[in-house]
Design a protein around this nucleic acid. Structure first.
Lengths: 221, 221, 221, 221
DNA sequence: AATGAATGAGCCTTCATTCAT
DNA sequence: AATGAATGAAGGCTCATTCAT
């Protein structure tokens, strides 16, 4: 039931999982507590369904945006930037996933586990494509790279997830994307001042080209 | 009191924080429950003290071992390998830190926060030394590198922390150390004469980009 | 829930507040402990509700009886006599109010505070009416008179409230009513033996008239 | 031990009895907890001794001041004013006596009970002297007067004892002393000749009342 | 006289879940 | 489909007092 999902999402966002009361969720949805159990096996199942829906929204959004971005470096940066944005916008839901779902022994049997796989799959595909095109070295431990990205972001944003201070989505995205790119790139010769400047110019042009693509898409819809 | 710390550590390792009973801790230490509260403010304080002691042991061990290891790459790999080893040997205590301590809003005021800083400080110093010696590039976002290392490890070992399967300490240590090294190392190539021509090309590209940017801005406003 | 209120009242009367166990209250009401907390915020709230109900009973009883009693002196004596009777019949509940409720810093925000106001309001109105009719002096500090009455009664019955000995409701009522009347009456000439005897006779006749009134009321219902 | 008494009095005044910790009392006295029990049977005994000492100070002070005050009315007012002053200056200690000592079933066996007797004895003696000198009526229920005074004051100052607002020592002393005086004073008027006729009328009324009483009894049985 | 470490019993409260209506 | 009243298990914490040294 949509009203229950909406109510649950709101309450979970305000209170977190443990402090969210089924009674409050029911009240906000305009039903009695017992009704929850007609649609959801238990409170945890309700959380699972809420997070599932959230992931579905995110994945769909990723695909739309990613379709307009070209170049391994840009796409990689986008994935990082987008994930940082999610954390920045929904810290409480992120905490729920990290603490209440991922830590559960049954997490792997969970639908959210699968959706998270999908969620990070784009990053892996970008890296694989980079390897295939020769832009990245062969023999890279790709899952480990994925963990460096997502784990690095998670680690870096824990204070924010805890409710302390803030962080710069763009700044972190730039620095992290650069570092990951360097770790994977086939040669490291690029670091003369001229090559660095060339890289920047090329990236600018690519971004402009992306924007032109998007503009075209928008005008045709 | 040592007996209480030992007992608490054992019970926390077996049951986790929430499922650890103060009554069981007291019983194993051979005292009554009330005695716990002469030495510790509450159950959480007991956890804090246990983790503190554990960190102290680890930090001391690190320093002893690190003194014998030379070379940036070796030292970096050691830090990674050692952390992986800790997770491999004490997954439950690691979970406690990750889930029960780090997520707490008061974590920053905690002694464990400070010890964790110390714990990762070695890694930061190694990187700084690498930069100072010219082995690593200048201008590296060192805290972010730290987060890639520890967050990457954490992310990679979550299944194990959850109690699923196993992981290869040495394999991960090698792959991760290599990746981090590449991300930080200066380029091996020297500057070539043709680079001056590159500079000219770059400047031309930048001018094109500027023109395109201006054109877009005009049409969208 | 009525059963819980009944059970709670009984247990509070037997054990006092601190020694009353929620488990026993629940058991006597034939429900489980948790059920208490569906109807009452906590143990103290339960006490509050029990005392509230008791006050409501008393106030209603007062009004019924007071309607049949005429004459300032008689009405004043009735209020005193009735309060003494309450203490005589329910010493433990009175102790609860005096020690556990009235001493609480939040007492003033309590519903019982308001009901106690109502409870003593009758006395104040009787005195006010006495002043209005010229029977009592003008300029009397009425709240202080109320405190002399209720405080005097309380002070006088503390040994009984403590469980020691007994006291004569009628004797104290007579003596106290007389003293209060004297303190308030407009002239004190009445104290010749003849006037004293006259007063007694008149009061007897008034009481008989009251009884006749009541009898008539009863026979018409 | 004086240091313990001083420390205990301070802590009791700050925290009240229940919230006063023996550990804090010991600490302030510069001894360890166990030492308390060398001088006092238990925490309650410590409270008793502290209150005893306080009463002794007060009684001595009373006697000094009372020696200089003459006239029944003045002496009575002084007793009232002095008691109000005590409450005004030491509300917490007063609460301790009222709630923690007086309510105790063993209060009567307590030394404080006796001292409180002494404390109020002065008031009783003043009234007795008033009766002996003919200033007050004979046949007064003196203990009840004492209760009206001390109970009235207590009732009137409960809000203050609870920590709410303030009260005027002098204003209340005046009003209460006046009221008590009126309640006790003999009538000012002398007997008049017509009173003998009144006697006859009274006797006739009594006879009517007797007949009515009998009639009622007959019809209801 | 003083220490100070150890005692130890006991109860209020929570809230997801159920199931007869 | 919805109600909503009832369930019921479980555990951290306190602090005055003791007693061997």
């Amino acid at each position: 039931m949509a009203a229950l999902m909406t109510a649950a999402r709101a309450v979970f966002k305000e209170k977190g999982y443990a402090d969210a009361l089924t009674s409050e969720i029911a009240e906000r949805a305009g039903v009695v507590e017992g009704t929850i159990y007609r649609y959801f096996a238990n409170k945890r199942d309700l959380l699972l369904k809420v997070v599932e829906q959230w992931y579905a929204e995110m994945i769909s959004d990723y695909d739309q945006q990613l379709a307009r971005i070209h170049g391994t470096r840009n796409r990689l940066r986008f994935m990082i930037w987008r994930h940082l944005t999610v954390i920045h916008q929904e810290p409480v839901l992120c905490r729920l996933v990290l603490l209440d779902l991922r830590a559960d022994p049954a997490y792997r049997e969970t639908s959210v586990f699968g959706m998270n796989r999908q969620y990070t799959l784009r990053t892996i595909e970008i890296i694989e494509a980079g390897v295939a095109s020769g832009e990245f070295r062969p023999g890279i431990a790709i899952p480990l790279v994925r963990d460096m990205i997502y784990g690095g972001i998670e680690h870096h944003t824990w204070a924010y997830l805890r409710g302390e201070g803030d962080f710069s989505v763009d700044g972190i995205a730039d620095a992290l994307a650069d570092m990951i790119y360097r770790a994977l790139a086939v040669s490291q010769e690029a670091e003369t001042p001229e090559m660095s400047a060339l890289g920047k110019a090329v990236r600018r042009l690519e971004q402009i080209a992306d924007r032109l693509d998007s503009a075209q898409l928008d005008s045709t819809n």
